[in-house]
Write a protein that binds this DNA or RNA. Structure first.
Length: 412
DNA sequence: TCTGGGGTCCTTTTGCCC
DNA sequence: TCTGGGGCAAAAGGACCC
């Protein structure tokens, strides 16, 4: 169906469809295949190397065996023993992502990245010049494949969430336009789980109400949905089921929190090891704050026990900080206050919330209060890391006296 | 089948102040 | 003085997304 030139009216009427959702196909796996073309056509899984990893990305050949992302690696290997397993290379994905986002921004300044591998675009300004939203989508698909060697899928619609569903329906390597007058017909046959915001739990509640399709939701009284799911979720889903979605494409949403967490290879009950881990995570979190010129006021920790139950504890400081030592001292005090008696932990995490720009944060040194000098010390470490590489300088507690620098083993 | 790491958003609970 | 409740911010938990 070669529709060349600016289309006026049908077929595939894309007038008013100014929202594009672009989604890379099997992103991490596709990036790996660029440098290993001999693996094309084979089941390939990118996933965490350790015993406790999950699938991050899988080629369509692997998906044919039932493998999907977020699945435990152990299960994926069992489902697809012949799969080639690759451990992730995050910097490579970030680099490709950057290139792809640049392609988007060459079309329109209204680009809202959702993650490394997907973004919304508002092309209302560019559509006329380039021949309409469908042509813009096709141009993006061709250019991304040309420049980056990976394929993507594009949904074109009048709202964000319909565009997102459209890209999911035409995967892989496809494009789908959902004209305004076809939105309801497109939505209503879909299963409830297709809606953004309906996960495992919500889906179960809906099924118990006998609701299985988006159309079922649309024909259920708002009050019933709100009683079952809460006012917020209930009215949200009802609006979506009729194609109503007011959210605009907004580039540059500021960060609200940054954090770091780690699952241990085996459960840990040694408080000394856990303290050392909290120090690493605090330093990493604070370094990322400083790199972005951000400070934050609330420090929270996360503790996951061996049975997977998870708790969080948080404390709000008098002033926002980007100092690792301060984050660490707060984190340790929160952790010690739990009073755990050698409970077996599978994960700890540190997060800083309530983030604002460092420039606009009040940072007056209260009279008589010592500036401990950690900030300056850590900034010096940042500069050294820039010149000599991360890990060139590290807190004494993280340096093993009996071993060269490197990932700590977790055992003393 | 044994569940990552990065986040956002929403709801409920709690403590505090008036 | 006791009690109630509105309003608020912080804390905690949980669902969800990629």
């Amino acid at each position: 169906m070669p529709a060349i030139g600016p289309p006026k009216g049908p077929p595939g009427d894309d007038r008013g469809c100014t929202v594009l959702h672009v989604d890379m196909d099997a992103f991490y796996a596709s990036v790996e295949l660029r440098t290993r073309p001999e693996l094309r056509g084979l089941p390939v899984i990118v996933g965490g190397g350790g015993s406790r990893g999950v699938v991050l990305s899988a080629t369509y050949e692997a998906r044919a065996s039932g493998v999907h992302s977020a699945m435990p690696m152990a299960r994926a290997r069992r489902l697809c023993p012949q799969a080639v397993v690759i451990s992730p290379d995050h910097s490579a994905y970030a680099e490709v992502s950057h290139g792809v986002m640049e392609v988007f921004r060459s079309i329109s300044p209204l680009v809202e990245p959702i993650s490394l591998d997907e973004a919304f675009l508002d092309v209302r300004g560019a559509a006329r010049r380039l021949g309409g939203p469908r042509q813009v989508g096709e141009w993006i698909r061709a250019t991304v494949e040309d420049e980056q060697g990976i394929t993507c899928s594009v949904g074109v619609a009048t709202t964000k969430f319909v565009a997102k569903l459209a890209s999911a329906r035409c995967k892989p390597d496809g494009l789908l336009v959902v004209p305004a007058e076809r939105v309801v017909a497109f939505l209503h046959p879909l299963p409830v789980g297709a809606l953004w915001g309906v996960g495992e739990k919500t889906e179960e509640v809906l099924h118990k109400l006998g609701l299985h399709t988006v159309g079922d939701i649309a024909n259920t009284p708002l009050s019933t949905l709100q009683r079952a799911l809460g006012n917020g979720v209930g009215s949200h889903l009802h609006a979506l089921s009729w194609g109503r979605d007011e959210r605009r494409v907004t580039p540059l949403e500021p960060d609200k929190s940054v954090g770091a967490e780690e699952t241990f290879p085996v459960d840990i009950d040694d408080p000394e090891v856990i303290h050392r881990e909290l120090l690493r995570l605090s330093e990493r979190t604070a370094a990322r704050l400083r790199a972005k010129h951000h400070v934050g006021r609330t420090v929270s920790i996360k503790v996951r026990f061996s049975d997977f139950t998870t708790i969080t504890r948080s404390r709000t400081l008098k002033e926002a900080t980007d100092v690792g030592r301060e984050v660490y001292e707060t984190a340790v005090s929160l952790f010690d206050a739990l009073g755990l008696e050698r409970a077996r932990l599978r994960l700890v995490g540190v997060r800083v919330e309530g983030i604002v720009d460092a420039a606009e944060a009040p940072r007056q040194l209260l009279l008589g209060e010592k500036d401990s000098g950690w900030r300056e010390a850590e900034q010096a470490v940042d500069r050294a890391a820039l010149r000599f590489g991360a890990g060139a300088v590290r807190p004494a507690a993280l340096v093993r006296r009996d071993a060269p620098p490197g990932p700590t083993s977790g055992t003393a």
